[in-house]
Design a protein around this nucleic acid. Structure first.
Lengths: 103, 103
DNA sequence: TGGTTGTATGCCTTGACAAGAATATGCCTA
DNA sequence: TAGGCATATTCTTGTCAAGGCATACAACCA
C-alpha cells in the first residue's frame, strides 16, 4: 500500500529528523542527541520515513547511517505545483497593483 | 495557536476539497456533490481549512462560497525549498552521468 | 565467549481526530 | 411571520498512531 507523503510529514518530529539529515548524514545516536527524543521513538519515525522513501540507511559497523532521499519530495512538489501557479499569479497581481499605485 | 499546515493537508478529503476549489470557487453544496462526502463532514473540513488560512468564504444569500487562498501554500513551499535544492542537485548529477555515458 | 554498545521491535496506554446522526443557525420567500 | 433551504455545530463513537518501557537483535571488543 502506498504511503501518504503528507501523512508522513504531518508529524513534526519527522520533519525535524529530515531537517537534521538535510545538513549531513547521521547515525541514529546522533539524531537522538540532536533532537530530544527517545531512541525507540526516533527509530520508529525513521522506519516510517524509510518505508515512505524519504530516507535510506547504510550499515556502518553497529551504527546505521541515515540520509535523505531527495527524490521522494518530488511527489509533494508535484501536488503543490498548481497552487504555486495560483499564488505567483496572485503575486503578479499584487505587483501590478503596487505599480498602479505609484503612478 | 498556529495550525500545522502539514497536519491540515494530511487529510486526503481536505486535499480533494482544495483540488476542487483550485478550478473555481464553489459553494458547500457543490463540494458535497462533487466529492462524495456528507455535508457536515465537508463543513467540518472547510472549517479546518479556513482556520489554517487555506481557504476563505464569502456569503451569497444562504450559500457560502469558498475559494482557495494561495498565499497559505507559501509556508509549505518554504519548507520544501531546501529539499528541492538537494533534489535538483541530484538531477544535475544524473544528467551529467547520462552525458558521460553517451560519449 | 561474554559483555557492551547501537539500533530495532513489541506491547500497552493514551490522546487526537474523523465521521455519523441529530440539531441549531442564518437567510430567503411567500 | 412561518416555513424551507443551505450551512454550521454538537455529541458520541470508533480508529489509529505516538510515545514509554522493556526487550530483542546485531556487531564489535576483551
Amino acid at each position: 500500500m502506498p504511503v501518504d507523503a503528507f501523512a508522513v510529514l504531518a508529524e513534526p518530529a519527522r520533519r525535524r529528523i529530515l531537517d537534521e539529515l538535510r545538513d549531513a548524514d547521521r547515525s541514529v545516536g546522533e539524531l537522538v542527541a540532536a533532537l530530544t527524543i527517545s531512541q525507540p521513538t526516533v527509530s520508529k519515525h525513521l522506519k516510517v520515513l524509510r518505508d515512505a522513501g524519504f530516507v535510506s540507511s547504510r550499515t556502518a559497523a553497529q551504527q546505521r547511517i541515515y540520509h535523505v532521499e531527495p527524490a521522494q519530495f518530488a511527489a509533494l512538489d508535484e501536488w503543490l505545483a498548481p497552487y504555486r501557479l495560483l499564488w505567483t499569479k496572485h503575486l503578479d497581481k499584487l505587483a501590478r497593483h503596487l505599480d498602479t499605485m505609484e503612478r
